[in-house]
Design a protein around this nucleic acid. Structure first.
Lengths: 172, 172
DNA sequence: ATAGTTAGTAATTGGGCACTAACTTTCTCG
DNA sequence: CGAGAAAGTTAGTGCCCAATTACTAACTAT
C-alpha cells in the first residue's frame, strides 16, 4: 500500500513492492494472479481501514459529537499514516485508467467501497445528507492538500478541520 | 492534457500524446526537453483554465451570487470537459511521485498554481475563509466523484452542488 | 545561387518491467 | 522418519517505452 500510495499503479514496480515486503519479486505472482490484483487488494484494505477508523471513532457518540470525533480521528490518520490518504487518491484516479483499458471491474469495486464508506459516515452522522456531504467534502479537500504536500500552517489549511469549526488548524 | 488525464504521468506514453496531437513521437522531444516538461505544461494550462473559468463566472458579482455562479460554471466544466477534472487529480498525485524521484520543482509549481486558484476564489468570494474552504472542499469532492466515475443520480451526489443549497443534483 | 532555419519523419537503442519456468528449502503430519 | 505439500528462490524472456540519431523537405534571407 505504501508503495502504490507514492507511485500509483503504473509508477510502482512489482520489484519495489517485493523489496518492501521482503520477498522475491516472482513470489508475488504466486500470491497474486497479477499486478492488478495486488493493487486492488491494497485499495480494498485501504477503504476498509478508513471505514473502521470512523466506526471506532464514533462508537457510542451521536450527531455533533460523532462528527467531531470522526474529524479528529481522520486528523490523526493524516499525521500517522499519510500513505493511507495518498492511496485513496491513487485508487480514485486508477479507475479511469482501468476503465480505458477495458477493465470495468476495478471501477465497480472502488465505487462499491466508497459507497460503503459514504453510507457508514451517513449512518454515524444521523442520516443527515447535507452533513454527510459536507464531511466527505472536507475529507476530499484534506486528501488533496496532503497529496499536494502543502505544509501545515499554509493558508490553504485555514478553517479546514471541521466544517463547523472555522479558524482551526491542522497540527503537524 | 486529455491523454495525461486518463492515464496519469506513468500510464501515458509519449507516443499516445504524439498520435493525439498529430505529430511524430520524436518531434515532441524537439518541442519539449522531456516527458516531464510536457506534463508540467499540461498541468499549468489546466490550473490557469480553471482560474479563468471562475474569474469569468464571477465577473461583476459578489458574495452569494458569485458563489452560485462559480458553482454553476464548474458544473458545466464537469459535463463539457471532464478531462480537466481528471487532469487536476493527476496533477495532485504526481507531486508525491516527483518528490520521491528527487524533483521538488514539480511540487512547488503545483502548489503555487493551486494557491493562486485558492486566492482567486478567496477574493471573488469576498475574502471569507470559511466560505472559500467550503467551496474548495466541495470542488474536491466533485473531482473525486467524477474521477471514480459515479453516475449522476447516485446517492453520493446528493446535496453536492453548492454548500448552501442542499438537496440539489448534478444534471446528467 | 548560397547559406541557414524551420518543421518534420523513420529507424534504432537501451533500459525497465511484468510475468514464467524450473529448481530448492522448509514445514507438517501420518 | 520420510513423503508430500507449502514457501520460497534464481534465472530468464519478451515487450514496451523514453530518448537519440540521422535524415529530408520546404522556406527565407543574403
Amino acid at each position: 500500500m505504501a508503495e502504490f500510495a507514492r507511485g500509483g499503479y503504473y509508477g510502482t514496480s512489482t520489484e519495489a513492492i517485493a523489496k518492501r515486503v521482503g520477498v522475491s519479486q516472482p513470489y508475488l505472482f504466486r500470491l497474486f494472479p497479477g499486478k492488478k490484483a495486488i493493487f486492488l487488494a491494497a485499495a480494498q484494505r485501504c477503504i476498509e481501514d478508513t471505514i473502521r477508523t470512523f466506526e471506532e471513532a464514533a462508537e457510542g457518540l451521536e450527531g455533533e459529537a460523532a462528527l467531531h470525533a470522526m474529524g479528529q480521528a481522520y486528523a490523526e490518520v493524516i499525521v500517522e499514516q499519510p500513505e493511507r490518504v495518498l492511496m485513496q487518491m491513487q485508487m480514485y484516479i486508477t479507475v479511469g485508467a482501468a476503465e480505458q483499458a477495458g477493465d470495468s471491474e476495478f471501477g465497480e469495486v472502488v465505487r462499491a467501497g466508497w459507497t460503503r464508506l459514504w453510507d457508514t459516515v451517513h449512518l454515524l452522522l444521523g442520516a443527515d445528507t447535507g452533513r454527510t456531504t459536507g464531511f466527505m467534502a472536507h475529507g476530499m479537500l484534506i486528501n488533496s492538500l496532503v497529496t499536494m504536500g502543502f505544509p501545515p500552517g499554509h493558508r490553504v489549511w485555514e478553517s479546514v478541520n471541521g466544517p463547523t469549526r472555522p479558524g482551526g488548524r491542522i497540527e503537524p
